[in-house]
């Protein structure tokens, strides 16, 4: 089996994988980083979104081997020294999550959104989250949270 090496949440990791191993399987099964979820099999729900080299990507639609040498950040890598990332904090403050299953992917997408649109209006946020499906919240409080986080992230 081929070997793959990458940096995940700042740590160098390396493992043998079957070529068919998806990045999300690598994270969940080899690294026990189960915060990245799988909610569909057609690359649409966005529960699996992580950052690869700073960009949001659906970890269910990229092979582990494609990401040789990449810098990967998962939901587990956001909080620093016990402090929630401003996006995580805003989701809590504005009740932007209910069951929590879509939340990791939603938060990772939202951070990328704010990076590319530092002062997003409501429409930008709503359209920018089209790759993430939430069944619980009706999105309203997610939108509020992203707006607040954008303000707090110094946009």
């Amino acid at each position: 089996m081929p070997n793959v090496s990458m940096t995940v949440n700042g740590k160098a990791v390396s493992a043998e994988v079957e070529p068919r191993t998806l990045l999300v399987q690598f994270l969940r099964e080899k690294l026990s980083l189960t915060g990245t979820h799988v909610g569909c099999d057609t690359s649409q729900c966005g529960a699996c979104v992580v950052h690869i080299n700073g960009k949001s990507v659906k970890a269910c639609t990229t092979l582990a081997l494609q990401n040789e040498g990449a810098e990967v950040t998962t939901i587990e890598g956001l909080a620093q020294n016990g402090e929630l990332h401003p996006m995580q904090a805003a989701f809590k403050e504005h009740h932007g999550l209910q069951c929590g299953f879509c939340t990791p992917g939603m938060v990772m997408s939202a951070i990328d959104l704010v990076k590319t649109h530092p002062n997003p209006d409501e429409k930008t946020i709503r359209e920018g989250l089209e790759g993430n499906i939430c069944r619980c919240t009706g999105y309203q409080n997610i939108v509020k949270a992203v707006k607040t986080a954008a303000d707090n992230m110094g946009g």
Binding site: G46, K58, T61, L113, G128
Partner: peptide
Amino acid sequence: IGDTQVRNV
């Protein structure tokens, strides 16, 4: 095309 995450890849 697609969504942000699809466009990134």
